Amino acid sequence: MKRIVHKHPLAIRWFHWINFPVLFVMIWSGLLIYWAYDPYKISFGDYTLVSFFPDGFYKFLNVPFRLAEGMAWHWVFMWLFMLNGLLYIGYTFLSGEWRHLVPDRNSFREAIDVTLYDLGLRKTQPPFIKYNGAQKIAYFSIMLMGVGSVLTGFAIYKPAQFSWLTAILGGYEAARLEHFILTIGYVLFFFIHVGQVIRAGWQNFQSMVTGFEFTKNTGTPDRGTPDRDPPVTPDPVNNQPVAPSPTPNPLLPA
């Protein structure tokens, strides 16, 4: 027999699905801006291991010569990203949902257990709860990354007006690098998140759409509970049901 388990409130689902296209446009428009000056790469001596990004990548996505367009889209959706994030954080704390998201002292140990299980290095599946330790750390980190993206974004958007913020972040070049690293973090989180959703199955995805999921009720019938009438036996003489004698209380006198 299946039962309904409520998982995600309506507001959380709205914030989640609004943030997905908004963040997508932010990353896409940021790529149009980054094309104009793309200095970042991972090198080992004179050898470049990874270049963000090769010319073929830009041409494939039709990115070149769209700097002004990218800046326009980026600034508009920046405000939507900020508004959705502020409403999400406000709702999370006012509703008490933060208790499911903020990591606790057991979260890191749980995250290790979940990671070992996902990698096939642990056979026992961790207990099923709303958010395990790995999810708490990941989702809470995404919230902090959102704050970091806003701060670094303003630091490189208005470095003169927000000179104090730019200085705190290490200067314009440092703030731009931090902004870029956070964006790479979003992309990595997206692929890991989608992979985990696929691994968890359709029910997990459905719960973020409908707010609930169906689970099998594996519990056994409750016998002898206080709200259930005690069994009766028939009187062999009068053929009438006779209730059992109450159990004596050893604390009371006979």
Results as ranks from 00 to 15, higher is better:
residue 222 D to T: 13
residue 239 N to F: 04
residue 204 N to I: 00
residue 224 G to D: 12
residue 212 F to M: 01
residue 213 E to L: 06
residue 234 P to R: 04
residue 207 S to K: 07
residue 211 G to L: 00
residue 205 F to D: 03
residue 243 A to M: 06
residue 216 K to Q: 12
residue 198 I to A: 15
residue 220 T to A: 13
residue 191 F to T: 11
residue 238 N to M: 07
residue 242 V to I: 14
residue 227 D to K: 08
residue 210 T to C: 00
residue 215 T to H: 14
residue 203 Q to R: 14
residue 234 P to T: 13
residue 230 P to N: 04
residue 211 G to S: 00
residue 200 A to C: 01
residue 241 P to E: 08
residue 205 F to K: 01
residue 221 P to V: 12
residue 234 P to L: 03
residue 205 F to P: 01
residue 230 P to C: 04
residue 194 V to M: 11
residue 230 P to T: 06
residue 222 D to F: 05
residue 214 F to Q: 05
residue 213 E to D: 02
residue 223 R to C: 10
residue 218 T to Q: 09
residue 218 T to Y: 15
residue 193 H to T: 01
residue 214 F to V: 04
residue 193 H to Q: 13
residue 226 P to D: 13
residue 242 V to S: 03
residue 243 A to L: 13
residue 227 D to F: 15
residue 194 V to L: 14
residue 206 Q to W: 12
residue 213 E to T: 03
residue 210 T to K: 05
residue 206 Q to H: 09
residue 199 R to Q: 10
residue 207 S to N: 00
residue 205 F to C: 05
residue 244 P to S: 07
residue 218 T to S: 15
residue 212 F to C: 00
residue 208 M to G: 02
residue 244 P to T: 02
residue 209 V to T: 02
residue 242 V to Q: 09
residue 218 T to C: 03
residue 199 R to E: 07
residue 204 N to L: 07
residue 229 D to E: 14
residue 242 V to W: 00
residue 229 D to A: 15
residue 236 P to Y: 04
residue 229 D to K: 15
residue 245 S to G: 08
residue 220 T to P: 11
residue 246 P to D: 08
residue 219 G to Q: 14
residue 208 M to P: 00
residue 226 P to T: 09
residue 219 G to D: 15
residue 203 Q to F: 11
residue 191 F to Y: 07
residue 196 Q to Y: 03
residue 221 P to Y: 11
residue 192 I to V: 11
residue 245 S to H: 06
residue 214 F to M: 13
residue 245 S to A: 15
residue 230 P to D: 08
residue 230 P to E: 13
residue 232 V to E: 06
residue 196 Q to H: 13
residue 231 P to G: 02
residue 243 A to K: 15
residue 216 K to W: 08
residue 218 T to W: 08
residue 223 R to V: 10
residue 197 V to Q: 06
residue 219 G to K: 15
residue 234 P to V: 14
residue 191 F to H: 01
residue 230 P to R: 13
residue 242 V to G: 03
residue 236 P to K: 02
residue 207 S to R: 01
residue 200 A to L: 07
residue 198 I to E: 02
residue 214 F to Y: 13
residue 200 A to S: 10
residue 194 V to N: 00
residue 245 S to I: 08
residue 197 V to E: 05
residue 225 T to V: 14
residue 239 N to D: 11
residue 194 V to R: 04
residue 193 H to M: 06
residue 220 T to N: 13
residue 233 T to G: 00
residue 226 P to H: 14
residue 199 R to S: 09
residue 206 Q to L: 10
residue 232 V to M: 12
residue 223 R to D: 09
residue 235 D to A: 01
residue 222 D to Y: 08
residue 208 M to L: 02
residue 245 S to M: 09
residue 236 P to I: 02
residue 192 I to G: 07
residue 241 P to Q: 07
residue 244 P to F: 05
residue 243 A to W: 09
residue 209 V to D: 00
residue 241 P to T: 07
residue 231 P to D: 12
residue 194 V to W: 07
residue 209 V to R: 00
residue 240 Q to H: 11
